[in-house]
Design a protein around this nucleic acid. Sequence first.
DNA 1: ATAGGGTTAG
Length: 549
Amino acid sequence: MCFGLAFLVYELSQSHNTLSIVKQLHALTIKYHLSFDPFYATKIIRLYALNNDLHSARIVFDRIPCRSVYLWNSIIRAYARAHQFNHALCLFSQMLRTEIEPDNFTFASVIRACSDYLDEVDLRVVHGRVIIAGLGSDSISSSALVRAYSRVRFVDEARRVFNGMPKPDLVMWNSMVSGYGSSGCWDKGLELFRRMQKMGERPDGYTMVGLLSGLWEPSLLQVGKGIHGLCLKNGFESYAHVGSALVTMYSRCGCLSSAYGAFNSQSLPDLVQWSALITGLIQSGACEEALLLFREMNLKGQKADAISIASTLAACARLAMMGPGREIHCYVIRHGFELEVMVSSALVAMYSKSGFAGLGFRVFKAMSKRNTIAYNSVISGLGSNGLASFAFDMFNEMLEEGFQPDQSTFSALLGTCCHAGFVKDGWDLLRRMEKEFNIEPSTEHYVYMVKLLGMAGEFEKAYQLIHSIPGYTDSGVWGALLSCCEVHGNSELGEVVAHRLFEIAPDKSAYRVMLSNIYASNGRWNDVKSLRDDMMEGGLRKMPGLSWT
DNA sequence: ATAGGGTTAG
């Protein structure tokens, strides 16, 4: 056996090859007439996929006439991993038309594609096929099903699959626990966790991450601390994934000191842990601190990636700080991150929020790949800087390019109308989003619409609109109307709305201030006084904006 | 076959 073949056989068993080595290996399989052998082809496809060269992987696949299950699985898994779900599913349906039967690994990949790309209905179809194939109690395809049903918010269906397993293995338990976690049922996750322990199944790091992922708010801090304790007791806190789940959990629960603590207890924090902490700081409003931390990360030699850059740019945007934003932009250009849609969308927002919509627009124009979020970003950037017609142009372009607008698109567009005072366009959009795009307007869309009408002085219409909203008790829309009354000094309607708000949200002193401003602008000083006395009784001692009376 | 950080709108 010559050197080349020995090299080939050895390297094929390694998974940490670079793309150039994979290409050499591929060439060797051709040289030794092994390129049509399904075994070698499967390996080559897997290696191309691991190195993100799906194109080459596909070429190899297409050239093999005699395809084994393994070969099909490797190409389907490659597409599913790369989030190219349409390709994955397309290949799956091709496979169903051959005499090769899909196995549990095929189903696992396809189910993964369904949960990220398709909906519950498609998932049920695939589920049916799993059962027909006799894999109903196979743990590999069933745990994929549990995960997928949880991701599309059908936890109960996930539980049914779980219950159908005579003896769930650890992966199965973990999938169900994290299914509960990601669906916001942390208490059910914990219950399942206890049952699992009672049945003698030992949890591992995955279990802990699943439990932690369900803790989203400050009231769950104690629960989180309890789970942290369990991690410490079992030595799981040294796992990188557990570490970053802890950092995230503490930030979400509003306990930044503990987030820092979890971060610092990692001997060598990795990129994900750094960005978990940075994001935690941004969400708690500590944006300057987040920027400093990003710099510290770079100084420590940890290279940033698209996700951490995009998050940090969001901090610059919130601070409306061009300085650091531009610096990061330079870094982005030097390292080629402007090709990442996520990064460029964040850049557009950063420039726009700093008041330089033109620069944002230029970044957008230079993007080679776009998506709905990128369009949302540029539309709101232009619109919120008073460039309404440009914003509408981009909306039309987005539709021509075939991108689906979403809730945020319409928020951005209605916000644009507010800035420009385009009442008619506002009505148009509100109608189109429901009729043409099947998106139900949410409270914030109505808030924009009410503001738009109220600012134009069309109080009647605004009031009617609020009454036409199903379940119109939300304080947001009334607050918007009240602030319009404040601007216009409309005390007749203002009084009605304010009293309504006092009923819905009695503790909101802001509404009392607004009402008092309305009284003041009408010279009704006695009403101003009595409102203030009311507030004093209610324990609200300070009344901002009225210290001069 | 299971796990961590995510850009837009608000």
